[in-house]
Structure formats: C-alpha cells, structure tokens
Amino acid sequence: MYATNYHRAASVSEAASLFAGGAEAQYVSGGMTLIPTMKQRLAAPGDLVDLRHIPDMKGIAIDGRRVRIGAAVTHAEVAASSQLATVCPAVCRLAGMIGDPHVRHMGTIGGSVANNDPAADYPAAMLALAATIVTSQREIAADDFFTGLFETALEEGEIVVALAFDAPEKAGYAKFRNPASRYAMTGVFVAKASGNVRVAVTGAGSDGVFRQGDMEAALSANWSTDALSGVTVDPGGLISDLHGDAEYRANLVKVMAKRALAAAG
C-alpha cells in the first residue's frame, strides 16, 4: 500500500472540508472495497477521510412506510433490523447476502451505493425501489444516480449521507453468485408499489445496474412467473467474460427475476 494520511471526521461538514483540503483525497466508510484496492496499489489516496464515526450518517429511521437508512449503516445492521424487516424484508435479506459475515460487519450501504460496483447488490435495490440518494448537497433520484461502471452522479467531494425510499407492497431479490468471487454474476430486484412495478438488474450489464423494461411491463400486467416466461431478454449490452457469455447472463436475468418474484410472494 502506498502511504496515505488518515483523517477521522466527526461531522459531514468536517468530512467535506477535510476532503477539500486533501491531496487526491478519498472517503472511506467500511473500507471493504477501498482498503483491499489500496493493498493492491490500485488506489492511492493521498488523504483518506473516514466517514464511519459521523453520528448523522448512522441509524435506520422508519416513519410509516418511509424508510431512511443512514449511509454509514453496515450490511449486518440492515440485515438484522427487525424494524426494517416489518416494512421491507427484501432489503434485509439482500444485505444478509453481501460478502461474508466479517465483511457485513464493516461494509456500509452508503459505501456500496457510492462505489457503484457493477456487481454490487444495493444499486439494484435502490433503482428498483426508486430510492432517493441523500447527499451532503442535494437529493438525487436513483434513476439519475447510477451512471455507469463505478460511475455515479456524485460531484467531487460530495458525500452520500442517507438512502430513503417508500417501502413497496412487495419486493424480492435473488442473485447468482460467481462461485469464486461470490459477487453477483446476475442479481435481480423486483418491487411493486401502488401498481407500479420496477425490475433492476445488477452484475449483468456492461454499463452497470439497469432497469429491465420488458419485465416491468409484463409484471405490471400480470404479477406472476408466467408473465416472466413470455419475456425475451436481449443479450445485447450484457457482459461477456470468462465466467459466462452474454447469452448465459440473459438467461440468468430471467431465472433470477423468477426467483426474486417467488421471494417477493
């Protein structure tokens, strides 16, 4: 690892000013992606600003059907939240499928969303739930937030502070893991809210997470696996690599969508 200067921020505004005063600065939350990347010398922030101890970024708040998850909430905390499980258990189950128990104790929802790894789980949930990404500067709709591979609408120095969404009537997530890396080769999140169905796919798209419009139309008309059977998934725009070609992933999208629907009930 290259040398770095560590700073622990006590507030969002302090974090932003530490970042602005840093050289090649990066934020770190749980660090479950960034620290391994720094170990491999694929990232070399001159200054590292730690967001993990900021009180305003912690906690899960639920007001009726409105859910607000602080960006520094860990995957383990989301997975174990009985309060969240009563309104949106699919998100708890998704969090419990990320990485392994030790990674879930450190990794955070804000870190995952801000990093936008094309095989990460949370971006699919945020997109399918039409979530709002609350930042240090503004609120961004998930539809506008995820812009490409590891790319988001975040400006330089902007911090994801919280994720907010309305709990859907029904939601489910299923993923097919790469047997070695355990990342999603394809993961599908389905959500139904006041008749509106959204289907988001992670792990499969060459530009990262995306919505599957044909499945959304089919499920809006008929919320059943039969409706999905009639959908043809176009392999165009899907990833082809040594783990599986685009046709294989196109099939996985369909199979995972069916499993996600079964999980949603």
Binding site: Y6, R8, V28, G31, M32, I35, P36, K39, L48, D50, R52, A76, P101, H102, V103, H105, M106
Partner: peptide
C-alpha cells in the same frame, strides 16, 4: 473481534 463483532483485520487500517 472489533467492538464485539468479527472483522477481517487485514482489511482495516490500525488507525481506523
């Protein structure tokens, strides 16, 4: 165990 929770000490900086 960091604050009672299992973590990978190879993926955390000592300062963190």
């Amino acid at each position: 165990h960091l604050d009672g929770k299992s973590v990978k000490s190879c993926s955390i900086l000592a300062v963190q």
